[in-house]
Amino acid sequence: KLTRKKWKDPGIVMVIILSIISLIVWIWWPADTFVGGISLAGWAMFVCFFIWLALTVTYVVWMERLEKKEMQ
């Protein structure tokens, strides 16, 4: 039997975090504010490259620990 709730799965948690961060960027969308000659909306998307990478590393580590625990 699957013991954990699927909606608490690390994958779902990460999708929710990714969606919230994306929504913040899309709703905020500071197109007319410029930093170094480039729109702040562009910089916000640029910063997200690294947030996505951090979420991905977190997920891989989390899943491997979870599966190790379940196998014991």
């Binding site: 690390p10 994958g11 779902i12 990460m14 999708v15 990714l18 994306s22 960027v25 562009g42 910089w43 998307m45 640029f46 997200c48 490259f49 996505w52 990478l53 979420l55 991905t56 997920y59 891989v60």
Partner: peptide, 18 residues
């Protein structure tokens, strides 16, 4: 270009999560 990357960098991550 950054909007491309905003979505494209998340391609493998999103696929992995789901």
């Amino acid at each position: 270009l950054l909007a491309y990357g905003f979505g494209a960098v998340a391609i493998p991550s999103f696929a992995m999560f789901l």
